[in-house]
Amino acid sequence: MLHIINKSPFENNSLASCLRVAGAAKDHAILFIEDGVYGATQGTAVEKSVRDAMANMAVYALNPDLEARGVQGRVMNGVKLVDYDGFVDLVAEHDNVQSWL
């Protein structure tokens, strides 16, 4: 299952809830898009929780959104960057998708 996060982790609890529900399970992946991409950057208060999740699940971030926000150089190691085509591939590869609005 693919989980899409589009809100900053400092604005609401979507990332925290997503990690709580999906973090311990297998076969889940996270894709950060829009303001959600801040959750994929280093040195934040949520970095540890994202790193912990990366032990079990793949974590992706949408590069155009990172670039737009000037944080493409701050991405955590281990986060895989995708472009729009990659975004479509991820959605197609997974059985289902949950958008954490």
Binding site: V21, A24, A25, N96
Partner: peptide, 18 residues
């Protein structure tokens, strides 16, 4: 539990969020 919820979600064909 959160983990059970994650499993339940993953078992769906379609998940729609509000």
């Amino acid at each position: 539990s959160a983990a059970e919820m994650g499993e339940m979600m993953a078992a769906q064909d379609v998940v729609i969020s509000f």
